[in-house]
């Protein structure tokens, strides 16, 4: 039954979007974390989505979503002159990550909408399947 595969497809989409939401939460939570050196500073994380064509038969396949990896944003940390900060280096600087809260929020909304779309697909398909099971009983 190919209709059962819809659960796999939508489920994979949901888990990918959930991971994206997780990275957004992580980025937003760490937006204000400072570190004593440029290397030690938190780097924004972004998931990379990839579609996987699962070949079941010769002609049939299903395209699920896979997170092929999480990349760290390679932008320079922002230095702040705070000599009194306990983490400040010898020159009196602390570094904060270059995270744009607005971009992250937009990313979050996009991820949650995509998640909702997948949930909607799941509930519709579930309803259709239940109706199919009741065929001829009415």
């Amino acid at each position: 039954m190919s209709v059962f595969k819809v659960f796999d497809v939508a489920g994979s989409g949901m888990s990918a979007q959930m991971l994206r939401l997780n990275t957004v939460a992580s980025n937003l939570a760490n937006a204000e974390t400072v570190a004593g050196s440029e290397q030690a500073v938190y780097k924004a994380r972004h998931p990379v989505f990839e579609s996987v064509l699962n070949e079941v038969g010769q002609q049939d396949e299903m395209a699920t979503v896979k997170v092929s990896g999480i990349i760290e944003q390679q932008t320079a940390a922002i230095p702040h002159y705070r000599p009194s900060h306990p983490l400040a280096n010898a020159e009196g600087y602390v570094y904060s990550p270059d995270i744009d809260a607005v971009t992250e929020m937009a990313n979050m909304i996009s991820a949650s909408r995509s998640y909702q779309n997948n949930v909607e697909v799941l509930s519709t398909v579930k309803e259709l399947m239940l109706r199919t099971l009741q065929l001829g009983q009415g």
Binding site: V6, A10, G13, E50, S51, M62, V121, V125, L128
Partner: peptide, 26 residues
């Protein structure tokens, strides 16, 4: 019904892959 079932699967794939780079809708 078979056709609609197959189409349900294809469309759900498209929706699930809405944010996947390089994915082509079918």
């Amino acid at each position: 019904l078979l056709l609609f079932e197959r189409r349900t699967q294809l469309l759900s794939e498209n929706i699930a892959n809405a944010d996947t780079p390089g994915y082509k809708a079918r």
